[in-house]
Amino acid sequence: MKDHLRHLKDEDVLLLLNDLLEQYGYDFTDYSFASVKRRLQRVYIADRFPSFAEFRYRVKTDPGYLVHLMEQITVNVTEMFRDPGFFQELRRQVLPILATYPLIRIWHAGCSSGEEAYSVAILLHELNLLHKSIIYATDINESVLETARKGIFPLQYMQQYSQNYLLSGGKEEFSRYYAANYEHAKFSDTLREKIIFAVHNLVTDRSFNEFQLIICRNVLIYFNKDLQDKVLHLFSDSLEQLGFLALGAKETLRFTTVAPLFKPVAQKEKIWRKMTQ
């Protein structure tokens, strides 16, 4: 039980966050403190540092370690067709409207290893829209994007994903979208070709295009109120008039400064539409 004694103090966390900002330009100071502290605490114990000073020294002097740390601080838990009800609404209410555009541009912000971006590509494919769509899938971590670009996921999850897919209103055999090989499922090139994976930091980077749909689920929960507002303005500025914004199951526009610009489309499934300039 000795691990319990090796507790990071709040001051330690603030020092590290300051190092990450000053030295590497990664700004976590407007992230939820409790969540960042918990993530740092986990790495600190998992990597068996004898003291906080040595942890800090490693972060400051080893850029290779930084890559690992970034992966550990940010949450990269995702699955295909997570919250099937959401994907059902996307299929039913949003994509038929996007179908009227000559070119469909979608931004998937905070895509992690890409499972949801592939899910959206599957929906587009089934509605015969994929050929005229581009999904820009971005994340702060280059290393998870590497996984996303390969489109190879553990075969053991496919049963769960297939179940999610069917619950979301999917009518096909889910297995037609991937080739199984030993422990892996490799998703088809038809899907991959329409997704551009790129690094984008929501805290520091700007808008890079205009979209008809922005999906950003379970990212804002890790930000404080000010940063949430800032990012929501970035989304609003990056949406075309009448574009759609989709957030995670426990995220809301309520009480934010962009709320007046949006009208709810599917309240329970957290989809809004931009109504005013």
Partner: peptide
């Protein structure tokens, strides 16, 4: 809530976490 961890911030506000 189901499917989220619940954390408490130093200022007494709550954070949900999907890790």
């Amino acid at each position: 809530p189901a499917d989220y961890h619940l954390l408490i911030e130093p200022d007494g506000s709550l954070t949900l976490d999907a890790s």
